[in-house]
């Protein structure tokens, strides 16, 4: 398992990847963000969670620095005990939420992924 971001031909990187990047640029390669650490841009603890989601659900938007190019991601936190600016690293989790409990077709997407853990 990797945490794949996509680099486009104009040098920009997004997570997740899209068929076309910012300004219509074409994807050229993927980058595994799980090998990097990131900084918390902002975070929240959500207490009104949908079916199949842990309660409370700690979430953060984090920013990775990939050779000078910054790329943001959103994801669960391993703990609610964080501050904006904290450094975190991705840790792999088998199942981030119960695939069949919500409205989304279970087959239509992946359910494993990464939580962010303070370093």
């Amino acid at each position: 398992m990797t945490m794949e971001a996509t680099r486009y031909d104009d040098g920009s990187i997004t997570y997740p990847g899209h068929p076309r990047g910012p300004g219509g640029s074409e994807p050229v390669e993927t980058i595994d963000l799980s090998e990097y650490t990131a900084e918390i841009v902002t975070w929240t603890t959500s207490t009104a969670t949908p079916p199949g989601v842990r309660e409370p659900n700690h979430l953060a938007i984090v920013e990775f620095d990939v050779e000078g190019e910054s790329v943001r991601a959103i994801g669960q936190l391993t703990t609610g005990d964080v501050e904006t600016g904290d450094e975190v690293r991705p840790v792999y989790v088998d199942e981030l939420r119960d695939p069949g409990a919500g409205i989304r077709e279970p087959e239509s997407q992946a359910w494993d992924g990464y939580r962010f853990e303070p370093v």
Binding site: Y15, P16, V41, T42, W43, T44, T45, S46, A48, T49, P50, G52, V53, R54, N57, L59, A60, I61, A73, I74, G75, Q76, T84, L96, R97, G102, R104, S108, Q109, A110, W111, G113
Partner: peptide, 20 residues
């Protein structure tokens, strides 16, 4: 899908943005 699997909701976007 990359947001949905983390249990992201609209209220949680609001929380993230409000803190920032």
């Amino acid at each position: 899908p990359a947001e949905y699997k983390h249990g992201v909701t609209l209220p949680s976007f609001a929380g993230l943005t409000a803190r920032h």
